[in-house]
Write a protein that binds this DNA or RNA. Structure first.
Length: 934
RNA sequence: GCUCAGAUGGUGGAACUGGUAGACACGCAGGACUUAAAAUCCUGUGCCCUCAACAGGCGUGCGGGUUCGAUUCCCGCUCUGAGUACCA
């Protein structure tokens, strides 16, 4: 029979499902291997051809690892809480759970068609109560924990209470809010329960705090920093404004250093690590206090202004101090004479939008407050300014200006005529621009004159600390993550409020179910949708928290749930966690670099601190698959002289001769950029009577690379391709397209080549009449060579995730075996095994035809590479003259340079190239090349 | 601005440690089969010069360098894509 992909694929997909072929056991004699895909949000649009790219790669890897004798965990699930289902609910009244369920069914059908070897018995859905029960449980652990800096890990809150009881705050080194109280054990004892709770909340790893949040009125919710782009929401592009709100936060900053250090231990793409490093933004420096000079009018808020600097060594070069315009002391520190100027300036900065402020980094602006501060090291008075280049949200919102060493300070000083003092003898041309060098010895720098950088920093930090004027300090850009959304379709936060204080619900009450509501909108009074729930009340009185968890909650621990997905007593059993440990290979998009991947590492470290898990890092190796862009096709409608559209469409090559408008055309009625005219006429009514100006008898469409989207008619659906070519062809073609990590436009041109390859492979096992036919003769040397070449090649390729090159190699191998007329069972059976990770259906069928038990292919043994079959005794040496390849010379590989030289010089053909000239030197590299220098 | 990735035929791409650039596939051209088309098969296909060539020249973004030899290493530049942005 000819290659009947449809029957074959259906047969084996059913077989795998019926026999649970890929069910993984959480114990085995075999070594374990955990392959994870980033689970999808099940959107209403279904899968397009770009989505499965990473899944195919991970599936090939999983199948390969099984053949290599590993016990492989390769699960799949759905990140099923999210905004689109809720937006749809708002519009239609349809419960998001129903929409989600339907979308998941579509996803599942599409995924099944591609023949993935997922263990579906471990499927998770973040929106299922059986799953989010444990997301809530982890939240409760965070609430019940604090970060002990001494032990550098999270601990149960009871250890903090013990410390308070024993010695008050004296011994406590914690990551906590800034406004914590200092108290003695005797004070603690006198606190009311309420006071104690208020104080403890300042230490908990998830805590409430009034924070300025990114409020998006259009979405009716708060967004995380990474969900906001240039003042607009990443999803939907709605304006975002700043608003103060009581919010749940996660103390991720406690883990900043460990998150940074961990990056050095994991095999991730360098750009993702770099993005996380930048996001965390660690800077080592010092905080320094500048005393405020009390003016005659008695202005004074505090004794000091504290600045953060990474160049404390330049402190003698300070010629002014700057506060952010939003700094809370600005009004109090402004003298009456400067009041007008300062207020005008603040008004000006307020008018500037985020965008203006970013675009315009060149213009220098600022205003003098009239106040002076005292440089702690030199005792010098310097002016206190405000300027919008200082950000209120970073460091202390105050900066010391050192014009000789910092270009931005230099511009500021030059513009406002402030002094520029050289502080290092190695600084050059500081009258033209700043020189940030750390070289040389200090000058004009008081007691550090003559010192070098390292010495000066250490000395100054000490000096400042002894006098209480400053100290060494590490600053992070990263801030605590806000953990609440004013939305319906998310995990309820397992907290209730009584007398204004938050309390956890009892563990037995979990899961705290999402209540039914009549409308999925905020209430008229602006409360979140959950406020609409009737009779949704905690049994101790009070009311439940009305926010739900953000999108990243459910995905921050899901890889553990897969280890033991159906466990009702724990998020995963200790045995399962001990066995599977961490994800060995994680494949997904780089868009999650600073979101999901950072939060997951945070929760992972937390769970480890509490002893529930073992691994400091959850994802050992990460691969980012490239984005598949759309490739749009266009037709060109001819316009008449008045620019009015006609009914005529001109082929792309001829369009310059006419006035035309380019119109998107459905890529599914275009093949190799040639338009199917009949389908085009049938596509839309307005084209029914279209006329065409053809080139070479064809209508050629224009091409452009854009995002894949419905409105551009460039969405290619895997279902259509599977219908036409089968899943095995789709799988191989997606890999054949190019390197996995590279982004590229989808182009169906070329899929025929892969389909032809599979037919050719099928034909190897059949005779002219398409009857299955193999023989049992002893394989020839040439056949063995072709086989072992591909065994080695594919193995090497898979290990380095170069799937595109192995597809080519398969083609070469099958071409070779076809030329050799190979019908040898031994050879072909090994071919079936090595191709099976890529094209599992056809291989299962052939495996069975070869007489093996159905379905045993998935756990067959990968053939062993034997280098002796590749050993050659002759090699066609390329002979080049002055590096230019001229001819090939067949020589025995046993020959050494002297013999080779004499044979070469005796060669007539070679002599022709020499053209009478004498060779100066002959380079001979055994098995590689002969190069003659003339 | 900074960081990272990349630039190879008409197209997707290959060349893994400095050793025959363009594998494999698409497309295109020619041929076989067919009444014809589709499908299938065969042949050719980097560019230029040439009737043609197992003749010559050019050729991996551009300009230099190291080397017997560079797509690969080094220096400088251009362009494209991604991320990030007054971070003190």
């Amino acid at each position: 029979m000819d290659y009947q992909f449809k029957e074959i694929e259906q047969k084996w997909q059913k077989f795998w499902a019926d026999h649970q072929t890929f069910k993984a056991e959480s114990n085995s004699e075999k070594p374990k291997y955990y392959v994870l895909d980033m689970f999808p949000y099940p959107s209403g649009a279904g899968l397009h051809v770009g989505h499965p790219l990473g899944y195919i790669a991970s599936d090939i890897f999983s199948r390969y690892k099984r053949l290599k004798g590993f016990n492989v965990l390769h699960p799949m699930g759905y990140d099923s809480f999210g905004l689109p289902a809720e937006q749809y609910a708002i519009q239609t009244g349809q419960h998001p759970a129903i929409t989600t369920e339907a979308n998941i069914a579509t996803y599942r059908r599409q995924l099944d068609q591609i023949g993935f070897s997922f263990d579906w018995s471990r499927e998770v859905r973040t929106s299922e109560p059986s799953y989010y029960k444990w997301t809530q449980w982890i939240f409760m652990q965070l609430f019940n924990s604090w970060y002990n800096i001494e032990n550098d890990r999270a601990e149960d809150i009871t250890t903090l209470i013990e410390k308070f009881n024993a010695s008050g705050t004296a011994d406590v080194k914690a990551v906590c809010d800034e406004d914590v109280k200092s108290f003695l054990p005797s004070d603690w004892a006198t606190f009311t329960d309420e006071e104690k709770q208020i104080e403890l909340l300042k230490y908990r790893l998830t805590y409430l705090r009034e924070s300025t949040v990114n409020w998006c009125p259009a979405l009716g919710t708060v967004l995380a920093n990474d969900e906001v782009k240039d003042g607009f929401s990443e999803r939907g592009g709605f304006p975002v404004e700043q608003k103060k709100m009581m919010q749940w936060s996660m103390r991720i900053t406690a883990y900043a250093d460990r998150l940074l250090q961990g990056l050095d231990t994991i095999d991730w793409p360098e750009p993702v690590k770099e993005m996380q490093r930048n996001w965390i933004g660690k800077s080592v420096g010092a905080s320094v206090k500048f005393k405020i000079e009390t003016s005659d009018s008695g202005l004074r808020t505090s004794d000091y202004i504290e600045v953060f600097t990474t160049r404390v060594d330049t402190i003698f070069g300070v010629s002014y101090l700057v506060l952010a315009p939003e700094h809370e002391w600005v009004a109090e520190l402004t003298t009456p004479e400067q009041k007008q100027a300062v207020e005008d300036y603040i008004a000006l900065t307020k008018k500037k939008s985020e965008l203006d402020r970013m675009a315009d980094t060149k213009t220098v602006s600022g205003a003098f407050t009239g106040t002076y501060v005292i440089n702690p090291v030199s005792g010098e008075r310097v002016q206190l300014w405000i300027a919008d280049y200082v950000l209120a949200g970073y460091g202390t919102g105050a900066v010391m200006g050192v014009p000789s060493g910092d270009q931005r300070d230099w511009l500021f000083a030059t513009h406002f005529n402030l002094p520029i003092v050289q502080i290092l003898d190695a600084q050059k041309d500081i009258d033209v621009q700043a020189d940030p060098t750390k070289e040389g010895k200090y000058i004009n720098s008081g007691f550090i004159n003559g010192m070098e950088y390292k010495e000066a920093v250490a000395f100054l930090n000490n000096w400042l600390e002894e006098r209480g004027a400053g100290k060494a300090k590490v600053n992070f850009r990263q801030r605590d993550a806000i953990f609440g959304r004013q939305r319906y379709w998310g995990e309820p936060i397992p907290v209730y409020f009584k007398d204004g204080l938050p309390y956890l619900v009892q563990e037995e009450e979990l899961p705290l179910l999402l209540p039914e509501i009549d409308k999925y909108l905020p209430t008229e009074t602006g409360e979140p949708p959950l406020a609409r729930a009737e009779n949704w009340l905690p049994k101790d009185g009070g009311h439940y928290e009305l926010s739900t968890m953000p999108g990243w909650a459910g995905s921050s621990w899901y890889w553990y749930r897969y280890m033991d997905a159906n466990n009702n007593n724990e998020f995963a059993s200790k045995e399962a966690i001990d066995y599977w440990q961490a994800v060995d290979l994680y494949i997904g998009g780089s868009e999650h670099a600073t979101g999901h991947l950072l939060y997951s590492r945070f929760w992972n470290k937390f769970l480890k601190d509490l002893g529930y898990t073992k691994e400091e890092e959850p994802f050992k190796k990460l691969i980012n698959q490239g984005m598949i862009q759309g490739r749009s096709n266009f037709v060109y409608r001819v316009n008449d002289e008045n620019g009015k559209p006609t009914n005529t469409y001109v082929s792309a090559g001829l369009r310059k001769e006419y006035k035309t408008s380019a119109l998107h055309v459905d890529v599914n009625i275009v093949e190799n950029d040639t338009l199917d005219l009949a389908k085009f006429k049938a596509w839309r009514e307005e084209y029914a009577n279209a006329e065409f100006i053809l080139e070479g008898g064809k209508y050629i469409c224009g091409v452009e690379v854009e995002k894949m989207s419905k409105s551009k008619f460039n969405v290619v659906n895997p279902d259509d391709l599977i219908e036409r070519y089968g899943a095995d062809t789709l799988r191989m073609y997606e890999m054949f397209l190019g390197p996995l990590e590279q982004s590229k436009p989808w182009n169906t041109n070329g899929i025929e080549g892969v389909f032809k390859f599979l037919r050719k492979f099928w034909r190897l096992f059949h005779n002219e009449e398409w009857v299955f036919h193999v023989n049992d003769v002893v394989p020839t040397k040439a056949e063995l060579k072709a086989l072992h070449k591909i065994i080695k090649k594919v193995q090497d390729d898979i290990e380095r995730f170069s799937f595109n090159t192995s597809v080519s190699s398969f083609m070469i191998a099958v071409n070779e075996l076809t030329d050799l007329k190979c019908k040898n069972r031994q050879i072909l059976e090994d071919m079936v095994i090595i191709l099976s990770p890529y094209a599992p259906h056809i291989c299962e069928e052939l495996w069975q035809l070869l007489g093996n038990d159905a379905g045993t292919l998935s756990y067959a043994a990968y053939p062993t590479f034997k280098p002796e079959y590749l050993v050659e005794d002759e090699f066609a040496y390329p002979v080049s003259i002055n590096g230019k390849m001229k001819m090939n010379l067949n020589l025995s590989l046993t020959l050494a340079q002297p013999e080779v030289e004499s044979i070469l010089l005796a060669d007539e053909h070679f002599q022709k190239f020499l053209d009478g000239k004498a060779p100066k030197k002959i380079i001979f590299v055994k098995g590689k090349i002969i190069n003659v220098v003339v």
